[in-house]
Simulated assay, not measured.
Amino acid sequence: MPPRRSYDQYCAAARTLDAVGDRWTLLIVRELLVGPRRYTDLHADLPGVSTDVLASRLKDMEQRGLATRRKLPPPSAAYVYELTGRGRELLPVLEALAAWGAPALDERAPTDAVRAHWFALPLLRHLATSGAEGVVEVRLAEGPFHVRLAGGARTYGDGPAPEGADARVTLDAGTCLAVSRGELTVGQGAREGRIEITGDSVLAKALRET
């Protein structure tokens, strides 16, 4: 891999791009925001990245204090990568990029890869507008993911909520994008029959009222 270069500018934006401006780095952050991931899992959910580039980016992220690598306890012998606190602080950055890019998601090209949890980033802030706390399981045709809302913080994970959900939201990708673009609230989608919200929790009721 070619040596890394700095912009050599005393500017916060330039320093940020020094750390995460390389191709693939922010998408690796997106995957690690889900939680600890094995190298093989990262490679599978980053279609198009070469093994050399992925290994190089992960090494850079470790050196910059954005990610760490650790061995899982027995009986597993696998290693996983996970974000540090500094790395997790990039969530609002990814959310802002997703919000800015949502209007560019028109027709899906036949060559476009897709993973259900990729829809989490543009959807997070819209789920949080209810002000209620708890776990939301989102179900798309592409698969499920879950979102945790607590104390103003929000995180997401791939797959069903491991400890159960306070609310379940079922919708299609097109409706999810409409919510992400601000064209529709979750509550409006439910009232129009485009979104199904199940659960009797405070969170489920708050989502219906958004």
Rank of each mutant, 00 (worst) to 15 (best):
residue 1 M to G: 15
residue 5 R to S: 15
residue 6 S to C: 08
residue 7 Y to I: 10
residue 7 Y to K: 13
residue 9 Q to C: 08
residue 12 A to W: 06
residue 12 A to K: 05
residue 13 A to L: 11
residue 16 T to A: 09
residue 18 D to T: 11
residue 27 L to F: 09
residue 27 L to D: 15
residue 27 L to A: 08
residue 28 I to H: 04
residue 28 I to L: 11
residue 30 R to W: 04
residue 32 L to V: 09
residue 33 L to I: 03
residue 34 V to W: 03
residue 35 G to M: 07
residue 35 G to A: 08
residue 35 G to H: 05
residue 37 R to S: 10
residue 38 R to W: 05
residue 39 Y to S: 04
residue 42 L to P: 10
residue 42 L to R: 12
residue 45 D to H: 14
residue 47 P to G: 14
residue 47 P to D: 15
residue 50 S to R: 09
residue 50 S to Q: 11
residue 53 V to S: 15
residue 54 L to F: 15
residue 55 A to Y: 07
residue 55 A to N: 08
residue 57 R to A: 15
residue 59 K to D: 13
residue 59 K to W: 08
residue 60 D to M: 07
residue 61 M to F: 02
residue 62 E to Q: 15
residue 68 T to D: 12
residue 69 R to K: 13
residue 70 R to Q: 12
residue 72 L to G: 02
residue 74 P to E: 13
residue 76 S to R: 10
residue 76 S to F: 03
residue 77 A to C: 06
residue 77 A to R: 14
residue 80 V to T: 10
residue 80 V to F: 02
residue 80 V to D: 05
residue 82 E to Q: 09
residue 82 E to G: 02
residue 83 L to P: 10
residue 84 T to H: 07
residue 87 G to N: 04
residue 90 L to R: 06
residue 91 L to F: 05
residue 92 P to D: 06
residue 92 P to C: 04
residue 92 P to W: 03
residue 92 P to L: 01
residue 92 P to G: 01
residue 93 V to W: 14
residue 93 V to Y: 14
residue 95 E to A: 15
residue 95 E to P: 05
residue 96 A to G: 00
residue 96 A to D: 00
residue 97 L to W: 12
residue 97 L to S: 04
residue 99 A to H: 13
residue 99 A to D: 15
residue 99 A to Y: 07
residue 100 W to Q: 14
residue 101 G to V: 01
residue 102 A to I: 07
residue 103 P to D: 02
residue 104 A to S: 14
residue 105 L to T: 10
residue 106 D to Q: 15
residue 108 R to I: 10
residue 108 R to L: 11
residue 109 A to G: 13
residue 119 F to K: 03
residue 120 A to W: 03
residue 122 P to N: 07
residue 123 L to M: 14
residue 123 L to Y: 09
residue 123 L to I: 04
residue 126 H to R: 05
residue 128 A to S: 13
residue 129 T to R: 10
residue 129 T to F: 01
residue 129 T to H: 05
residue 133 E to L: 05
residue 134 G to D: 00
residue 134 G to E: 04
residue 136 V to P: 00
residue 138 V to A: 07
residue 140 L to W: 05
residue 140 L to E: 13
residue 144 P to Y: 02
residue 145 F to M: 02
residue 145 F to D: 01
residue 145 F to W: 02
residue 147 V to W: 10
residue 148 R to V: 13
residue 148 R to W: 02
residue 151 G to F: 01
residue 151 G to H: 04
residue 151 G to M: 02
residue 151 G to L: 02
residue 151 G to R: 04
residue 152 G to N: 12
residue 152 G to D: 08
residue 153 A to W: 00
residue 156 Y to F: 14
residue 158 D to T: 10
residue 159 G to D: 06
residue 160 P to T: 05
residue 160 P to H: 03
residue 160 P to M: 01
residue 160 P to A: 08
residue 161 A to Y: 00
residue 168 R to G: 03
residue 169 V to Y: 05
residue 171 L to P: 00
residue 171 L to V: 01
residue 172 D to A: 06
residue 174 G to S: 13
residue 175 T to V: 09
residue 181 R to H: 06
residue 184 L to H: 00
residue 185 T to D: 07
residue 196 E to G: 06
residue 196 E to N: 06
residue 198 T to Q: 05
residue 198 T to P: 01
residue 198 T to D: 08
residue 198 T to M: 03
residue 201 S to P: 07
residue 201 S to V: 09
residue 202 V to K: 10
residue 202 V to Q: 11
residue 202 V to N: 11
residue 204 A to S: 11
residue 204 A to N: 04
residue 206 A to D: 09
residue 207 L to A: 05
residue 210 T to W: 06
